[in-house]
Design a protein around this nucleic acid. Sequence first.
DNA 1: CGAATATATGTCGGATCTGACATATAGCAT
DNA 2: ATGCTATATGTCAGATCCGACATATATTCG
Lengths: 103, 103
Amino acid sequence: MTLSKKRRLQERGWRIGTVAEFLKLPSEEAAYVEVKVQLATLVHRRRLALKITQAELARRIESSQSRVAKMEAADESVSIDLLVRSLLALGASTTTVRRMLPK
Amino acid sequence: MTLSKKRRLQERGWRIGTVAEFLKLPSEEAAYVEVKVQLATLVHRRRLALKITQAELARRIESSQSRVAKMEAADESVSIDLLVRSLLALGASTTTVRRMLPK
DNA sequence: CGAATATATGTCGGATCTGACATATAGCAT
DNA sequence: ATGCTATATGTCAGATCCGACATATATTCG
């Protein structure tokens, strides 16, 4: 590939041979984890408020008990997507969810 | 959707409606999409505020122009995780994180 | 208008996340 | 201490999402 072509591609936003972490700054990573922990705490609180077991919650959201446990522990294998979907399935409003997400 | 595209579709006999109407989404899924659209809008607004192109934003968050376009369009292939990470990379903050920082 | 730039759309291999399962640990009655 | 129920942890194949790329369409500007 010629240099001029590389430059042209890079100007249009195409990466060429660079490997880097998406969240490299500590503050961004910390913020991401904190969002997850907040959502996880909300799921846990809502489940307790409903007085249901992790297994029962898993049934309602068509997941498994082990994944619910990981959700509430904000495990790294759990996405924010899953936490949000669970909260909504637990009856949380979009406003409640949004309050936990970055502005 | 752009105005010109709407015009083009309408010329071909398509009626323009909302995604929820078309898919007859259950309320939970509608709420999920709503959260996603709100985050997508925030990303779009933040990018415009910085006066940078999608390609430039892609470079900053180590992604690609096409994915940024899909993010701002709240494409179904885009997760809330990615939107949250992008917002944080764009300098968005969470109240919980702010509370953790020294005063 | 046409060219340059910006954004949208479609596809795909590889990376990440998922539910499911096995199993461990904890709490808590009897 | 033993059973019983709830929660935690580890693993993995399949599902989903990712960046990258190609290309189409839209917008801006001479």
